[in-house]
Amino acid sequence: MRKPDVVLRLTPKPMAVEVKHLSAAYDGQPVLEDVDVALPTGKWTAIIGPNGAGKSTLFRILLGVMKPLRGEVTVHGEDPARQRRLGHIAYMAQQEAVEWDFPISVQDTVLTGRFGHMRGDPWWRQMLSPRWAEPHHWKVVHRCLEAVNMQDFAHRPIGALSGGQKKRVLLARALAQEARLLLLDEPLAGVDTASERLILDLLARQRAAGCTVVMVTHDMDSARRYADQVLLINRTIVGMGAPDNMLVDEMLARTAVAGWRPVARRDPPLEAFP
């Protein structure tokens, strides 16, 4: 007998990320201790905490680069490894993590975001150079390049870009994956005001389209203006809630970030290419 569809509708929507009793350590030095967190689907979460508080470690565990000591992690109610294979988790790296000397153009870099989905293409396509990938992959790539306003730089080598442009290329690559969960490691670090606006507005549009956005940041100003919720973390969870309730002196002091002020704006760096 078939189960009625109603049952399916009543089952609660699984959390985008759910972490239970998670502990992790580098060389015996604990970075995360007994962390419990649930990030709801379709929300924009800003993770804030001092350096070494385990923000990036949380990402590394979600990406499977690091194994936790203890605890359980699920993404959309499933094993993160399975979700990664399905292409549901996109990651935007910090700028320093990428080899900018690599002989690759901007559009080919963004195309690598499609490599996961290309595993579903016919085998003979996979034998061809990525340049002859299925046209729909290229459509996504061009759309993402336009979204970050980098279409004029599509054929440039990535090494010739300025800081803000590099960030936008990394974002385009993450978007090209069309994932349900976007993990962003300091997407606003070292970008000029124009790029910052562009990145934040683009993420807002992703969120509106139903994407879950999780970003590690030091920029409390944009966290306050854009995020739905703020997660304060320093080895353990200090608090999670609306930005207005979390980004107050008392909570920030408890995150051992006493003396932290919203980061002072620096002058925008000079663009190498106007």
């Binding site: 990406l63 680069v65 990664r84 988790i89 790296a93 993590a97 690759i104 975001g113 994956q177």
Partner: peptide, 9 residues
């Protein structure tokens, strides 16, 4: 190019 990206995919 980027092992982390390979892992994420």
């Amino acid at each position: 190019f980027d092992p982390m990206q390979a892992q994420a995919l």
